[in-house]
C-alpha cells in the first residue's frame, strides 16, 4: 500500500505517494530528492537527520512521514536564499565548524530552531539545543562558537 504525503517543503508545496510506514528521512531523500538530509543511525540516537517540522527540530528517521502531512518541513536545502548563505552557514565556515560535514545539516537545523525561537542564546542554550546531535570530528567547540557568532551577527543585522 502507498500513502499520500503532502508537505510544504522549504516553502514549496510538494506531494508524493510513500510506502506505508515510511519515515520522513526516506521520503525526503527518495520521494522528494532532498539529499541534504543525512541518515546516521536510523534509530533516533545521533541527530544527523534533524529537520524542522512546523518549526520544531525532529529526528526524521523516527518520524512517520504521514504524520507530517499538511505540515511545513524545513531542511538545509531551504536555508540559503539564492546566492546568499544563511548567517549560520557563514558562521560554520568562518569557525571551521565542519570537518567531514556529515553531521552538519542536522547541526544547522538544530541551531536554526534555536535561533528562530531565541535570537540571543547563551552558551548553555546552544549546548542544550545541539545536545542530541553527535559530531565525531570537531569536538563541538567550533560549532558552539559558530552558533553564538551567528546569533550575534543576526542580532546586529536586525537591530
Amino acid at each position: 500500500m502507498k500513502t499520500p504525503i503532502q508537505l510544504r517543503l522549504n516553502g514549496e508545496e510538494v506531494a508524493a505517494f510513500a510506502d506505508d510506514g515510511a519515515n520522513l528521512l526516506d521520503v525526503l531523500r527518495e520521494s522528494f530528492g532532498d539529499l541534504t538530509v543525512k541518515g546516521g543511525c536510523w534509530q533516533g540516537t545521533c541527530g544527523t537527520c534533524t529537520v524542522l517540522v512546523g518549526g520544531n527540530p525532529r529526528l526524521s528517521c523516527v518520524t512517520l512521514a504521514e504524520s507530517c502531512s499538511g505540515n511545513s518541513v524545513e531542511t538545509v536545502a531551504g536555508l540559503r536564499r539564492g546566492a546568499d548563505l544563511h548567517p549560520l552557514q557563514s558562521a560554520f565556515m568562518e569557525h571551521f565548524a565542519a570537518q567531514c560535514g556529515y553531521c552538519t545539516p542536522g547541526m544547522l537545523m538544530a541551531a536554526k530552531a534555536l535561533l528562530d525561537r531565541n535570537p540571543n542564546p547563551t552558551r548553555e542554550d546552544v549546548v542544550d539545543a545541539i545536545c542530541g546531535n553527535i559530531c565525531r570530528c570537531t569536538g563541538y567547540e567550533p560549532i558552539i562558537a559558530a552558533i553564538l557568532d551567528a546569533a550575534r551577527k543576526g542580532a546586529r543585522r536586525s537591530a
Partner: peptide, 17 residues
C-alpha cells in the same frame, strides 16, 4: 587558518557522499 576546499558543500548539504 586555511579553509577546507569542501566547506561550502558541507554547510549547504550538497557534498555528495
Amino acid at each position: 587558518p586555511t579553509q577546507r576546499q569542501d566547506i561550502l558543500g558541507h554547510v549547504t548539504g550538497t557534498s555528495a557522499y
